[in-house]
Each structure stands twice: as C-alpha cells, then as structure tokens.
Simulated assay, not measured.
Amino acid sequence: MEVYHSIAEIRDRLKKEGKTIGFVPTMGALHQGHLALVERAKSENELAVCSIFVNPTQFDKAEDLAKYPRTLDADLALLESVNCDFVFAPSAEEMYSALPQMKFDFGNLEHVMEGRFRKGHFNGVGIVVSKLFHIVQPDKAYFGLKDLQQVAVINRMIQDLSFPITLVPCPIIREDDGLAMSSRNRRLSPEARKLAPHIFRILNEAKLKLEAEEKPQNVLSHVEEAFAAIPEFELEYFEIVDFESLESLESKNPEGQNALCLAAYLDGVRLIDNLVF
C-alpha cells in the first residue's frame, strides 16, 4: 500500500498505473463500514484508492471540526488489512492553498434535512469531492447510504457536471445492536452507547407504522414521543421522504422507495440514520 500527501504525486502515480480505479473518499477515523466500501472497490476495480481528509469547508461549527477524531496511523493499518492500494492523505494547506470562492447550489437537495440545520455543509462537500474526483480520476466512487442526502448531492453533481464516474451507493453497515457505524460513535460515553441503538429501534417502529398505512403525521408524532420518553436524546428532525428526490411525502410512496431519515443528539454527539424501504 502506498501513501501520498501531495496532490501532484498521487495524480502522477495513478496516471502511470493506467488501471481502473475504485475510489472511497473518507474523513478518517475508519470503521468496518469504510472498510466494506474499500473491499467492494477492490473487488470491482483493478485499484482501490482511499482518501483521508477532514474537510474544514463542510463543518458549520468550529467545535465540531476540532473534535473530529484524527487517527491516521490506525486508519492506515486498517486499510492495509483490506489490501487498499493507494491512500491520499493531504493536509488542509495542500487541498486549499486559498479558500474556495465558488459555491455550489444543489437546489432543494441542500435545503432539507441536513441542509436545513447545517448551512453551507453541502457546498463544502461538493467542493472537496469535486477536487478529489479531479485529483484521483476514478472510474467508480463508493459512498455509504448512511449519509443518504450526501449520496443524492454527489449524484446530482456527477450528473450536472458530467463527471465520467459511476456512483456506487452501498448499504449501511450496523453494529450487532443495530447502531449505524459512524466515526462519531467513539465520542459516546459508555452509558450513551447503550442508549444509541434506540435510534434504529424507533426507525423500525416508524417503518412498520407507515407500512400499516398510518398517516405520516401519526408516524411523526410516534417518533417524537418515542424520543421524548428517553430524555438523554434530543431529536433534531425526522422526515419521511422520497428516496430519490428527498421531497417530503404526505403518504407512503407505493411505487418507489421511501426513506425515513433522522438526526438526534445524544451525549452532545450528533447522530444520523435512515431506513429505506
């Protein structure tokens, strides 16, 4: 496995290989969910490339950026264990010699759910992912569906800007108790970690109610009451949306896929999850 910190060096090295590339962009603090993406990239391409970069332009709160775990040595060991071929781990100065002046506008996609509570977040995502696409020039890019809205935004960017890249959305990887794997989970106290699986339980209850033809407003009320019954949680949002457009649904979509999406604070840590059916 080769590790590069320079844009020019990783770009030149990959050009010399001349092989198909499966790319997994990450912010580090890797877990099994990330490794599953790398393994799939490895199985479907001649080379698997992973980037590790805590992107400052997608954080709307300075304290969240400061608290984000940085575990490069451990991350590299994990990537080597799944036979990743190349790792790109640049500094902020390498990626941004000057602050970006341009801005992305993803329309309605960036104004609902995550975008409603994290102003500028998807502009930062769009900028860094487009830069990484230009640097690595992958054939396929692999993203986990835990960040469902991010996948929709990246798909829009690929389509609108004609990137010659196939987006490969991958299923959420969960712990044995149902908690969606996330780098943020390691910030939970032991007590909070025991409570965290309630997120997936409540999502499943909401799914069953919607499948039983209950009105979305009744499902929303159930979710709000379920979280209110566990005072350690603070529910930020719960949305029932169309899987592709992310537009709110007034009733269950019988022909397409529905997505139940939420964000909640637990122990001061913001956790997101979703259930698609």
Rank of each mutant, 00 (worst) to 15 (best):
E239L: 06
P190L: 03
R270D: 10
K15F: 05
R187A: 12
V87I: 12
F23H: 10
E244R: 12
R116E: 15
N204M: 12
L148A: 14
F53P: 00
Y142C: 05
E247P: 02
P171A: 07
E236V: 12
L35M: 10
N204Q: 13
C84E: 06
I240K: 08
I127S: 00
G115D: 08
Y68V: 00
L275Y: 13
S162V: 12
V38L: 06
E191K: 12
S221L: 13
F277I: 10
Q101D: 11
L161Q: 12
A229W: 08
G115V: 04
S97L: 09
V49E: 03
I230A: 02
L208P: 01
P190N: 10
Q159S: 10
E255P: 01
L47V: 07
Y4C: 01
P69Q: 06
V87Y: 11
Y237K: 01
A263G: 13
E205C: 08
A92C: 14
A29I: 04
A62H: 06
V87R: 12
R70P: 05
H34S: 10
L203K: 05
L195S: 10
H198P: 03
M113R: 11
E224R: 15
A8P: 03
R40Q: 15
E114S: 03
E244W: 08
K209F: 06
A8Q: 15
C261Q: 11
P138D: 09
Q101H: 11
L132H: 04
S97F: 07
V276K: 04
F23R: 06
F104P: 02
D160F: 00
L35T: 05
L195T: 13
S97H: 13
E232M: 05
L203E: 07
L145F: 00
E63M: 07
A74P: 06
E17Y: 11
L35D: 09
V153K: 06
G120E: 10
N155Q: 14
S91F: 04
K146C: 06
E2A: 08
V128S: 00
G124H: 04
A264V: 14
H111V: 10
V54M: 00
F133H: 02
G256C: 05
R201D: 15
A226F: 02
L179D: 06
R186V: 15
D85A: 05
R201Q: 15
H198A: 14
S182N: 09
Y237D: 02
L249N: 12
P254I: 08
F59L: 02
A29M: 02
T166N: 12
V219P: 00
L132M: 14
E225Q: 15
I199H: 04
I10E: 01
D147Q: 06
D177A: 05
D85N: 14
L220C: 11
I154P: 01
S162Y: 15
F53E: 03
D176T: 13
S245I: 00
L271A: 01
L47G: 06
F86W: 14
F163E: 00
T71H: 09
L275V: 02
